[in-house]
């Protein structure tokens, strides 16, 4: 559904991506992780056609995103970090923009707003950043687009809304859809995403499914002051250490996104070696 091959991109003379490859299949919620400036937003913008790669080929749902064909755009919804909210009521916003999306579900939108506790008659420009984000997220989910791309969707959401949002996404995804989410707040993606893409040093250094990660890596906690042995990475937490090690026959543990990300960044080649097998 999304196929990027040998993508090269840079701002001015500074290269951001060189020979980047990425393939995503329908029916998944994929998290894009990376440090500041790693290129998460840029990657998303290339996929939706807001930025054009300097070389390589990109094909999304059979379209070249850079052509911005209206049929392609009506099946892609992008939630940027910086939102555009025109001065109008939410209900008006829906009546003006929903007709562009043939699979738009009005019921889903109004239910989403109810869950987020945003009034259907409120004026967009009068809402706080978090509330605007809730409207746009509810709208994005209601479009039922095949590709829903969200850049830092949980930024600005309060704690109950983050959990609400996770539930809504899990409920909403269909077999023919991809949700692509970038975030700094990796914990917000826990128990939600089924594959992870990690960007670092101009390339994708990790792209795996959650069950595969659970099978290959073990996430544990050891009490006490001594750092556990034979581990890939450990982090001191109150009362002990949270650690990651190779899964050598242990049962499959729950993936801790934050420590996984740090492990990948610090042990890039070792992690790649483990997952090559």
């Amino acid at each position: 559904m999304v196929a990027l091959q040998n993508i090269g991109f840079g701002y001015g003379k500074k290269a951001l991506f060189e020979n980047l490859d990425l393939e995503l299949n329908a029916g998944s919620i994929c998290g894009v992780l990376g440090k500041n400036g790693a290129g998460k937003t840029t990657l998303m913008k290339i996929i939706v056609g807001l930025l054009f790669p300097k070389n390589g080929t990109s094909l999304v749902m059979g379209y070249q995103p850079s052509e911005r064909h209206p049929d392609f755009l009506s099946d892609v919804y992008f939630v940027p970090e910086e939102l555009y909210a025109p001065k109008m009521k939410v209900s008006k916003y829906m009546s003006l923009y929903a007709p562009f999306y043939p699979r738009f579900d009005e019921q889903k939108f109004t239910n989403g707003l109810k869950e987020f506790e945003v009034e259907f008659d409120s004026v967009l420009t009068d809402l706080s950043y978090g509330q605007k984000k809730k409207v746009i997220l509810a709208f994005g989910l209601a479009t039922n687009c095949k590709l829903l791309v969200m850049d830092e969707p949980t930024n600005g959401l309060d704690i109950p809304s983050k959990s609400q949002f996770r539930k809504m996404m899990a409920r909403s995804i269909e077999d023919d859809q991809i949700y692509l989410i970038s975030t700094h707040q990796v914990k917000d993606l826990s128990n939600l995403i089924d594959s992870i893409v990690v960007l670092d040093d101009h390339e994708i250094i990790f792209h795996e499914k959650i069950p595969d990660i659970s099978r290959e890596l073990f996430f544990g906690f050891q009490q006490g002051m001594n750092e556990p042995e034979n581990i890939l990475h450990a982090e001191r937490t109150p009362g002990g250490f949270t650690f990651v090690k190779r899964n050598e026959g242990e049962y499959e543990s729950e993936v801790d996104m934050e420590i996984l990300f740090n492990t990948i960044i610090k042990n890039k080649s070792l992690i790649q070696e483990i997952f090559k097998k």
């Binding site: 807001l50 049929d71 755009l73 009506s74 892609v76 919804y77 910086e82 939102l83 555009y84």
Partner: peptide, 13 residues
């Protein structure tokens, strides 16, 4: 910046 993404992503030629 915000308006540009919105304008470009509007499904029309």
């Amino acid at each position: 910046k915000e308006g540009r993404s919105f304008y470009l992503m509007t499904p029309a030629s």
